[in-house]
Design a protein around this nucleic acid. Sequence first.
DNA 1: ATGACCCTTTATAAGGGA
Length: 259
Amino acid sequence: MKIATYNVNGINARLPVLLDWLEQESPDVVCLQELKAPDEKIPKHEIARSGYNAIWHGQKRWNGVAILAKEQLEIKEVGRGLEGEPEDEQSRYLEAIINDIVIGCLYLPNGNPAPGPKFDYKLRWFDRLAKKAKQLLDQDVPVILTGDYNVMPTEKDVYKPERWVDDALFRPETRKAFHDLSAQGWTDAIRKLYPDETIYTFWDYFRNAFGRNAGLRIDHFLLSPHLVPKLKNAGVDKHVRGWEKSSDHAPVWIELEKE
DNA sequence: ATGACCCTTTATAAGGGA
């Protein structure tokens, strides 16, 4: 079973790239972030025509997350949004059960400029996610928490770490929040398989960042303990970042052994 | 230090992204 995550940076602007990638790589489950579209503008017919069921939590202009699964797989939605801040209207979390696995699709706030109210919101959102994550671990079921975490967990995950120390994606508070979340008992799938390799999932549109491989690793898969022995492979579809009209992120994927 | 680029909008300049 192949599960992918992809920050599309506008699902309508990205539709041709998304459909081409789905056809080429044929992932079983896909978590999308940054739809940048309200529910009524999600291209649901095009997605269905490509052979995928989908649920989505859209929002006008910004944010927005969706979960796709091949049409023979049932998607049972079990949650949208995180508890703890009822006034929060940003669409950043969607949760479903597919093939008896809980899939949490998340788009963590960017948090810049830091310090400031946006950074405070990021850290609060991290805290709310950590509470959700702990609840899921306590249920003792297979869980995947995947998406755009907007965190480079270590210096290995940044092309020039010294330039990013004051950035919301790399500040000590942010890295500590990711570390503390992981320490609940989650496994970073990419680092489990490739502990020392330089692996990026995002390259800025500016300054020929992709051509220079000046990237960041900010899209992650966290696996609950049940799933770690089933992890067979993982990777980044880096070539998609080089396609015409691509997102600034590339798709990231894992393969789990079948039951 | 700044801005480069891309996406969105009851758009046509500005906010957000990372």
